[in-house]
Write a protein that binds this DNA or RNA. Structure first.
Lengths: 229, 229
DNA sequence: GAGTGGTCTAGACCACGCC
DNA sequence: GCGTGGTCTAGACCACTCG
């Protein structure tokens, strides 16, 4: 039974974690490895490529592959749609539209979305509930210059996230996470005290090099983003 | 000139973003695609496999590949070593050890690290500065049962993170991000007011199914974690 | 059972990056 | 130059899963 690329990957990772191959040291070439594992070079290549993608090793032509000195650690967080996040926990989802308006973009937003003076945006404030308690506060701004159909869309029954996904299926996004303090309004909506620390996610969605929408999601008190690797 | 896997990937992604292939729709099989692009199936396979890894499409044997209904979005955040993070911004790095002790693990930590009663831990409190201002507060607990050499290690000159990386090169980690309010001590160390919202990262590092170390990193006021995709 | 993706092979050519 | 990884090919067998 020949070694699969998973076998090879596991074995190499093992040698690294057990300290047989130390950080900074040179790993044998693909041809050598192919011989020792009794497999084709392509198979070894796939194992090594994945290890490189995961930040475990560093590869360079001519010089070969090395164990990274400082493991380049990356954490992958899923970016869930609130509704799914809540429903996957077996809770009932409820949505409420708090406010909806079409206005000229305020200056701070104009800068963010690279809008011209006078450009109009749709501004929405929504709340997402899990089992009846506030889960997430959504402050959404949609660029009407790029997405004019957002002016007449109806967000009273379901949130803008799902609507937007049907309009711009895929896009590039900038996500930023920070801590913020609850102001009076947030405190009321999220059922906490003013000043309470809250986790906030900001997201700018771009499409064809234009920013289509900007959203500020404030999570319920105590919310955590967790991941393993 | 034959199509590379990148060409194919870009082209398919284009069809999806332009809406030619709508969410939920079936994508041609690998053999069909290989023919249309004039390449081998392995090449198409790589393109499709990467699109699946990135959460753009969904693949199932027999039924084929489909454009995901809700793009499974994942954000990858780099988990930097504070020192590197600071130095990459062109700031000078300074480290200070605030407190160091070896104690019996408190109950809350025993639960977290799955320690037996009476097991001892090394507890360290450190500060990391960028250009002289407080950048990050580190509250570190090291399992001395698993890592006895931590008892005699010297952390007065450099932080435990770098030392730990030399001891346990690779490991699995659980990361959790939340917002917290500054207490008196944190406020003093991070130069902010008590009650200020702060971004906190908690990390449990496991090795051979044992938790080796737990750390609570509290970032300076206003700190953001940002990523793009 | 049959279709689709998952993986492997043996061989080939290319491109980068060190000397 | 020349060694190493990066990629492609043509063909093959396998494994999952749907009907």
């Amino acid at each position: 039974m020949p070694a699969t690329y998973r076998d090879i990957k596991t074995d190499i990772l093992g040698k690294i974690t057990r300290g047989e191959w130390k950080p900074g040291s040179l790993i044998p070439g693909e041809l050598d490895l192919a011989e020792t594992y009794g497999s084709a070079r392509a198979t070894v290549n796939r194992a090594m490529r994945e290890l490189a993608d995961e930040g475990i090793i560093e590869r360079k032509r001519k010089s070969g592959s090395r164990v990274r000195l400082t493991p380049l650690r990356q954490a992958r967080f899923d970016i869930p749609v609130v509704r799914h996040e809540i429903e996957e926990q077996g809770r009932s989802y409820r949505y409420a539209l708090i406010r909806s308006e079409v206005i000229a973009a305020p200056d701070w937003l104009r800068a963010r979305l690279a809008l011209a003076p006078g450009d109009r945006v749709r501004h929405l404030v929504c709340l997402h509930f899990g089992d009846g308690t506030p889960w997430q506060h959504e402050d959404r701004w949609i660029n009407l210059t790029l997405l004019p159909q957002a002016e007449s869309a109806d967000f009273s029954a379901s949130g803008p996230t799902e609507w937007l996904m049907s309009q711009i299926p895929f896009s590039s996004v900038e996500i930023s996470i920070a801590a913020t303090a609850a102001d009076e309004v947030l405190a009321q909506h999220l059922d906490c005290a003013p000043g309470d620390p809250l986790l906030m996610t900001e997201r700018s969605t771009r499409w064809n090099d234009q920013t289509v929408t900007y959203v500020r999601l404030v999570h319920r008190p105590g919310h955590r983003m967790t991941t393993r690797y």
